[in-house]
Amino acid sequence: MLQARNLSKSYNGTAALQDLNLEIAAGEIYCLLGANGAGKSTTIRLFLNFIDPTSGEALVDGLDVTREPLKTKHRLAYIPEQVMLYPHLSGMENLEYFAALAGHDDYPRSALEGFLVRSGLQADAHDQRVGEYSKGMRQKVGIAIALAKRAGALLLDEPTSGLDPEASSEFARLLMELRDDGVAILMATHDLFRAKEVGTRVGVMRRGVLRTEVDPAELDYADLERLYLDHVREGGDES
């Protein structure tokens, strides 16, 4: 579903991502760990074709994202670290707009409500203006937007930042449901605990390089943490 082949990106000679090879199949949750600046967001931005790769390719369903930018984006849903919405519109209106832009302009209100409920947004907030929302509530609308898109692959850039533990746990359960529905999920995260809980695979990145890949089922939480720290600390200072 999602594939990176020798994917590299450098800015003015500085490598942000180096020779990433990655394959995420339908029904998999791949958690990308790493410090800030390790190349996690760069990977997601390359899949979204917001930036062009310096070399290598990013594929969605076998389609190169630089050659088929619209088609590949139709098969992706994206939740950024900070979901940004239109403050003058309600959560419902935001969802309706984004869903329509994504090609789903025929959802009845009940279906849209269903997405908001499933993403955990309390019913009395649906018709409030987003300007009055907390960050967590906006994040939930972002999740609903991704659900409404019914995409085959999900790109998540630290999606649970700003969610309280309960919401974060609900979100994890939602991810596992999607996984079971056959969605391929790539999630960049700092949350080792969640990565261990939901990930079918976990990769650790440092300075643009994917250092190691593990199956979290084979490790307990302490092992994973040790592994992570080993890799991000390796070679000295990392901020």
Partner: peptide
Amino acid sequence: ERGTLRQVLSLGVP
């Protein structure tokens, strides 16, 4: 500036 453009462009709208 508000950050919504990135999400809009991620949708695959011409």
